[in-house]
């Protein structure tokens, strides 16, 4: 197998005395989907923020296409241009229309022409069933629609890897499906994805690898069939038992 697109190596991150990540290793190969699971507060969001350079790491490395992007000499803005991030709370820009949200980075950051950015945005919005909302402002959309726009906004920069942080956990249950459908489609088309999720059923269907984060390290990782159905670690079994109790598997 070729070198991973995203390679997180021994990443350590602390907030004051709270050491959240104690040496995390996760690799995402091209066209692969890796799902991060773990209890609340286990550091899934922190790991994704480190990978997208929204946080600096205390130790370890993040390699993007083999390049150490945590090196302080690297231009972090240039690295972020190669990533797509979708947040739990959508984080659309409320003062910009749907189309402006999507075309902002392609035009301002990537220097594409307005016409090209608009055509591409329209095509992407079409794919997620929101072409008719291009002129709307985010506050006129449902949560599910907003999150689909946020996915399109991230895809519009043609990222090397897509980072998704529990993108359905702020949604009403009946809106979860429409967002997951979009993610599945994007994955099927070959996008490289690292996602934190509470949706075990979805992780099982879409992910090639599931990584269980616990006490600041990846305790166990492997294909869904193995990690979810036949976990090797007692802590993984405990976590999955809690998830099953909560009806999420």
């Amino acid at each position: 197998m070729s070198a991973p697109v995203l390679d997180v190596r021994g990443v350590v991150k602390a907030f004051g005395s709270n050491v959240v990540l104690r040496g995390v290793d996760v690799a995402v190969a091209e066209h692969q989907v890796v799902a991060l699971i773990g209890g609340s507060g286990s550091g899934k969001s922190t790991l994704l923020r480190c990978a997208s350079l929204l946080e600096t790491v205390d130790d370890g490395q993040v390699l993007l296409d083999g390049e150490d992007v945590t090196d302080p000499r690297v231009d972090a803005d240039a690295v972020r241009r190669r990533l797509g991030v979708v947040f739990q709370a959508y984080n659309l820009f409320p003062h910009l229309s749907v189309l402006e949200n999507v075309t902002l980075a392609p035009t301002v950051v990537h220097g594409r022409s307005r016409a090209e950015a608009r055509d591409e945005a329209t095509a992407l919005l079409e794919r997620v069933g929101l072409a008719d909302k291009a002129g709307e402002y985010p506050d006129r959309l449902s949560g599910g629609q907003q999150q689909r726009v946020a996915i399109v906004r991230a895809l519009a920069v043609r990222p090397r890897v897509l980072l998704l942080d529990e993108i359905t956990s702020a949604l009403d249950p009946e809106l979860v499906g429409e967002v997951l459908r979009v993610v599945r489609e994007v994955a099927e088309q070959g996008m490289t994805i690292l996602m934190a999720t509470h949706e075990m059923g979805f992780a099982k269907q879409v992910a090639d690898t599931i990584a269980f984060l616990d006490a600041g390290v990846v305790l166990e990782s492997g294909p869904p069939a193995q990690v979810l159905a036949d976990p090797q670690e007692a802590r993984t079994r405990q976590f999955l038992a809690r998830v099953i109790d909560a009806g999420r598997l």
């Binding site: 929204l54 972020r80 947040f87 950051v109 920069v157």
Partner: peptide
Amino acid sequence: PSQRAAARSLGLTHRQSMRIV
């Protein structure tokens, strides 16, 4: 702050995030 995070995650510089977002 999540607005700034979203802007930076798209590759906007600090200055662009400030001015546009």
